[in-house]
């Protein structure tokens, strides 16, 4: 089962000829992801790692059957690329690009919503369903197929926790990076709703951080209706207010967005919140 991506996911890489796009196309192919076409305006007719390149998404779709894309287009052009993907009829768009202006993010996410398109990101490592499809830039070898769903605002911290889980014998159904920006497409609640309907997923790991109130909102949802066990780690307990901690979204504004507030809300919702990343697998052993 899993969520969002599986072995039927057929992928277009937007921005395939750039350094990042080309590098990760190779890694996705090696992982077994069905990358069927790439798009870079003006480079139609070329090939990247054996993948045919087209000038437009529409053209790529007229030659290949695809339902998802992954975007490596630089920030100034990323909104355009996302809108092109939506317009061409894709169902899922993963936006790897960091530093997209917030106004662009708001607009592209609104258009996606009106067209029932799922956006992952921006500023995400992507999504992986182990052994089936890696639509992202995460190192594939640290994941193993299993029963744990992961939802995270961070990249490397997710790898830290996922590899811990794998070593402890807990595989993953799907691991989803929702992105480190303030405005993102799929959020914690959307992802939890997908995991609740996925029979393969027995428990969910939520990796949050300071900034905004997405974790508090997720806690309300979990308390109200989420039926599977959830373990969580929240990064940034020592972060000072008013400073952006790397991610555009990781900032305590005034009194809002502190780790304490998130931890408190999650605990109140019955979530197992741990202090150290390695304790996630220890808690899961007790729960499952």
């Amino acid at each position: 089962m899993a969520i969002l991506v599986n072995n039927k996911t057929r992928v277009i890489v937007q921005g395939i000829t750039g350094t990042q796009g080309s590098f990760h196309t190779k890694l996705m192919l090696e992982y077994g992801t069905k990358v069927v076409a790439g798009v870079t305006p003006g480079k139609g007719g070329q090939e990247t790692h054996g993948v045919p390149v087209y000038d437009t998404v529409k053209e790529a779709l007229s030659e290949h059957d695809a339902n998802a894309s992954i975007i490596f287009v630089p920030a100034p052009f990323a909104k355009d690329a996302v809108l092109e993907g939506i317009n061409a009829g894709l169902e899922l768009i993963v936006v790897i690009t960091e530093h997209i202006p917030i106004k662009d993010a708001i607009q592209m996410i609104e258009v996606a919503k009106r067209n029932n398109v799922n956006i992952v990101g921006p500023n995400t490592p992507g999504v992986i369903t182990p052994n089936e499809c890696k639509l992202g830039i995460m190192p594939g070898h640290i994941f193993k197929r299993g029963e744990i769903g992961i939802i995270s605002r961070s990249g490397t911290l997710t790898y830290e926790i996922a590899s811990n889980l794998t070593r402890a014998g807990f595989g993953q159904s799907t691991c989803l990076g929702i992105g480190g920006d303030p405005v993102i497409g799929i959020n914690f609640i959307d992802a939890l709703q997908m995991f609740v309907n996925d029979d393969e997923t027995k428990a969910v790991v939520l990796i949050g951080e300071i900034g905004g109130d997405a974790e508090e909102k997720a806690a309300e949802y979990i308390k109200r209706e989420f039926t599977k066990p959830v373990a969580a780690f929240i990064a940034g307990r020592t972060a000072p207010p008013g400073k952006r901690m790397g991610h555009a979204g990781a900032i305590i504004s005034g009194r809002a967005g502190t780790a304490e507030s998130k931890i408190k809300a999650l605990k109140r919702a019955g979530v197992y919140v741990v202090e150290k990343p390695k304790e996630i697998s220890e808690r899961l052993k007790e729960i499952l």
Binding site: S154, G155, L157, E160, G180, G236, R237, T238, A239
Partner: peptide, 25 residues
Amino acid sequence: AYVELDGNIGIIGNGAGLVMATLDM
């Protein structure tokens, strides 16, 4: 991405979430 704090342990890491977690540890 650099933010100065008032302690004595300098920290470098890769990835915002991981570095925040490192400070927390």
